[in-house]
Design a binder for these strands. Sequence first.
DNA 1: CCCAATCCATAGGCATTAACTATAGAATAT
DNA 2: ATATTCTATAGTTAATGCCTATGGATTGGG
Lengths: 314, 314
Amino acid sequence: MELHQLRYFVAVADSGGFSKAARICFVAQPSLSQQIIKLEKELGQRLFERLGRTSVLTEAGRALLPRARLILKEAGDIKSGISDDLGSGAGQLSVGLIPTIAPYILPGVLKRFYESFPKARISVNENLTERLIKSIIGLEIELAVMSLPIEDKLIRMEPLFEDPLVLAISPVHELAKSEHVTIEDLRGIPFIALDEEHCLGEQINNFCYERQINPDIVCRTWNLSTIQHCVSFGSGVSLVPKMLVMTDVSNKCVYRPIKGQSPKRTVVAAWHRDRKLSKLAAEFIQIVKDEYAYLLETRSYEGSGNVSPIIANF
Amino acid sequence: MELHQLRYFVAVADSGGFSKAARICFVAQPSLSQQIIKLEKELGQRLFERLGRTSVLTEAGRALLPRARLILKEAGDIKSGISDDLGSGAGQLSVGLIPTIAPYILPGVLKRFYESFPKARISVNENLTERLIKSIIGLEIELAVMSLPIEDKLIRMEPLFEDPLVLAISPVHELAKSEHVTIEDLRGIPFIALDEEHCLGEQINNFCYERQINPDIVCRTWNLSTIQHCVSFGSGVSLVPKMLVMTDVSNKCVYRPIKGQSPKRTVVAAWHRDRKLSKLAAEFIQIVKDEYAYLLETRSYEGSGNVSPIIANF
DNA sequence: CCCAATCCATAGGCATTAACTATAGAATAT
DNA sequence: ATATTCTATAGTTAATGCCTATGGATTGGG
């Protein structure tokens, strides 16, 4: 069965004759007749009673007619339907984020995304960089939000923003008294470190190593929120991303920017080198940027370059 | 757009590659590729991203996929769907009946029909013979229940039953005293006649003319129920079809069979000479027969050849 | 790092099939 | 009765889908 056969069939049913239908379809009458006969053979049912002047539907033809119309309508609507879907933001998007980013921007990003594209379905995968890259290459996710460095040749990237690392300290800690700290202050003090399986943990590690600073690592954890708790209990200090600070409502820690060569991580969107980003994915990237800019604007009161220790008005 | 293109498209989407899809569809890979490319051109959208090893849907492809599946499913279900419709008695039937038949059997026939074919739609047209024949030829109705004679060469017929004509008289009339009457009793007595535009009126007219009986026609009406009222008021007698008697619950008239050559009309189903009756139409014919037989069985108590004047237990 | 395998696109020939012309047979309208 | 209209058939042409061969590109394995 093919669509043109259904088109011919409907034309005959509507016009009441093979010849008229042929004119409507801009084909010769024998061509149309043959296709109708072919359709009748395939269905094993005669579709029209050929009377002298006109042709009328048989019972089988009457049963076919609404189905044929439906199919033709759906086929005819495909092109505009696809455009509508693309235009309206309907569709499916699969993204990934690393665990040191997701908790801080995902809530706001999802909220924005659903507001902008209520018809879209999004699926989020929170995982370590290595696993996300595999998912990109394996085509399981379209896009990932991660942190440099990423070396895989199959990955293409676009930078989203730079996220500074700031010192997290207990409010009663000695260093909390000054408005800002320097790298040198880290030397030899008890330090709560993020596990190096996290790229952020590795980045901090490298950062200290390059400057030949060996913090006294008293704890190595998998979770930034564990770090927060340890720091607030005075177990040590740590370096945490600013996006954590901007969404911290606990008031248990204070945060100080690093004077001088402030460490930072570069957050990027990454996707398969050979894939063209879908419209939804491109929009998602923009939303992530917007969200971070929004956090910067509303949640960090950097009067004289320092991070406010207390976030009010959440 | 053609269905085989959608089939190929779905196969690629499902298998994740053109070559695999081609094997699934039992065509060579270039053939399938060409059809996909053709579809992409028609839609103005690229449907797959061709990556090295596999191909994945674009956003447009994702939008197309469910639509394509739907259409293919509907197309695949057509054959069985038609069979189901025919088997389940779904469908549309247009019938006609003449006014001297419809009131007496239509209620019971429709009830039976709806019980047997709850999914069917029936449309009934009550009209004079001449108009019904036009409707048959004009293909507006498929079937008509009428009375002989019918001469049109374009009409094919099947007899349904013979419906005797019986004398309708007032209960206080002289003739009501005898169990039966003869034709000769009609001579010269006041007679309520049906208009000759009705075939029944003409038949009665001819019947009397052939026997050279000239009843004294005191009233000519368009409606059998008018006749009933006139007769019950003693204005005269009339000949009415037995199907009227069998459904008369008024008890205002009594009815007497005609002894000897009883007049009768032959009720037939009529349809277009060149049309094959649909299953529903054939069933309708059978139901009309059944209904008349049922009326005969339950509504006429012909103990000794006479018609019961009073129909009880309705 | 190279080689083999795989994948998709292109090109060109083949074959199928849909379309066309011409016409016949039947039915209808004038 | 004649002319017109309708559908089916036959035979031919044209289109188009399919095939084989091949090339460029990528991938996976040794």
